[in-house]
Design a binder for these strands. Sequence first.
DNA 1: CAGTATCCAGACCGATACTG
DNA 2: CAGTATCGGTCTGGATACTG
Lengths: 93, 93
Amino acid sequence: MLEDVLGCKWSLHVLQLVRSGICRPGAMERAVPGLTAKVLNERLVKLVRFGVLDKAVFAEVPPRVEYRLTAFGESFVGLLDQIAALESQRSGA
Amino acid sequence: MLEDVLGCKWSLHVLQLVRSGICRPGAMERAVPGLTAKVLNERLVKLVRFGVLDKAVFAEVPPRVEYRLTAFGESFVGLLDQIAALESQRSGA
DNA sequence: CAGTATCCAGACCGATACTG
DNA sequence: CAGTATCGGTCTGGATACTG
């Protein structure tokens, strides 16, 4: 699963975005240069399948969708953060 | 860097191997079906470059090489373990 | 606006052969 | 035995177009 989530360079960005409140596909697409709807969706779907994200669909018009971190997802990105911290600690300090 | 390490499906296996004492290329190749010398080496080199592994070359004949986890590497795999634990906890329980 | 299908190019993996 | 170079197949990402 780690493989699947991190096998794509965008996954981390997506997770980061959701965490910073950018939880709508359109906004994400605009926020990350180079990220296309297709890839974004692939990631989103997988993240949801893995229980990292939750999908909330609002039956409105225009359609609105929001993604949120699940409890599992929170822990998950937390660990990821620790790794990032470890890394910057190594290369930076 | 996370990207680079996990962008390959073998990286985790390699790390796991080193941790379990299988630290020589030949042994690794034999231990993991489907893993070829080329890919193994690519991973090893990158892992060393990132400071996750340490390479020890023995000037013997036949040539012997051993890879070990650095302090950074230890912390790194530790975090990876926590993620794995989190995951099994999620799907298993 | 969200999501999907199609097409194409590029990257990566895997096999083989060769050097030290 | 360790490591590198080359070549070919495959899989994935990226761009475009279309549907709900």
